[in-house]
Nucleic acid binder design. Structure first.
Lengths: 211, 211
DNA sequence: AGCGTTATCGGTCGGCTGTATTATGTCAAG
DNA sequence: CTTGACATAATACAGCCGACCGATAACGCT
């Protein structure tokens, strides 16, 4: 069946098989043969589309990044024309947390990616660049919210941005089942409550949510 | 020199060599031969003390956990007889973040550990158990602080505990150099400020700290 | 002094890895 | 119908892995 084949589509199929391997079997089992088996193709065929292992890894991580970005953009678009900054920040955070299958895959991919980045100069630079860019996007929203009077003026935008990004620490807690999705979302909402509350509602209504 | 040898000490020496390998070369390079080279011993000798790779890994991670716990206990002891709960929580959080060489090692160890835990039933149970126990310790401090009136009574101890633990999300930001140690500490302090401030000081004095 | 125990080493084994090479099959254009 | 480019498969290969083994030597004890 070697009729002309859509290379890009083939490569994406293989990359998705790689994601499944990483998610289900772990980064240690990430071998060319395992990916080929998961994709239902032969090793030789895989190598026909990716000459080297590094090329496959780069393509798969890039695709995961794009996919994650696309989902974030869709979530933001669903918020309407001029969404409340609080909703924007919430959507960004929710997308980063492994709450739904889609974001769980990319979350695990980037976890393995970060771990490798600690010992690879080039990967480190790319991972750092991605994160810095994300940070800037969050900080812009925070600054605008302060300028619009939605967040108290004495809040330091740098500190608030850092605290928001640090909430991705829920990832570990969620993956290990220490907290449930509802508890994580409740905590995120409380944090956003306080960020946007000025001083009128420092606490919360106290719904019984949690864990 | 086969004079009688302190087995426990030998095993700890080897475990520390393993830590160095994980920290400097990465979890992917974690092989028996590499550890033996780092420890300056032969592969055969290493296997004399650890019959299997899994045994070595278990011992090394256990030791890392104990070490981390010991450092946390020391930090707490240094706070004096009846320390302020705020200082207790701060010390716990600081110990979890990769700010000093010691805690950076254990931080990376546990990062690799968590990543493997996602696909290994037994490792998952142990990692989860450790984290759950840590969570309970934090929640006890939070509840006591509320009972003592140091934290506003309308704060949900579960939510506050989750938010505190989520601050470990700074780990990734720190390791990739997206934020500096000073920025992370500033943000942690601000969060604790607000937790212990009731409603009199919802903001902060606004020192120029950061990044 | 002699013997059992412990420590250390080097080598070997089967297995798995990423990569490369070769062979076979399939299609479209000249 | 031939030719050549593409698709797929099968296999080879060199390297590293964890596990295992036997030889050797230094001690502790009797």
């Amino acid at each position: 069946m070697p009729k002309q084949v859509d290379h890009q589509e083939r490569r994406e199929t293989i990359a998705r098989a790689l994601w499944r391997v990483v998610e289900q079997r772990g980064a240690a089992q990430l071998t060319l043969r395992e990916v080929a088996r998961e994709a239902g193709i032969s090793l030789g065929q895989l190598q026909h589309y990716f000459g080297t292992r590094a090329e496959l890894l780069g393509f798969a991580t890039d695709l995961a990044g794009e996919q994650s970005g696309r989902r974030a953009a869709e979530a933001l678009a669903a918020l309407g024309e001029r969404p409340h900054p609080r909703a924007v920040l919430r959507a960004m955070l929710v997308e980063l947390l492994p709450l739904r299958p889609d974001s769980r895959v990319t979350s695990r991919m980037s976890a393995a990616y970060v771990l490798e980045a600690l010992h690879d100069e080039e990967v480190h630079a790319r991972a750092r660049g991605d994160l810095v860019r994300g940070r800037e996007a969050v900080e812009r929203v925070v600054r605008q919210a302060i300028a619009d009077g939605l967040v108290a003026a004495d809040r330091d935008p740098v500190v608030e941005t850092d605290l928001l990004l640090a909430l991705t620490g829920f990832t570990t807690l969620l993956e290990l089942g220490v907290v449930g999705p509802d508890a994580a979302l409740t905590a995120v909402d409380r944090h956003l409550d306080r960020l946007f509350a000025g001083e009128d509602r420092p606490g919360g209504e106290g719904r019984p949510g949690g864990r």
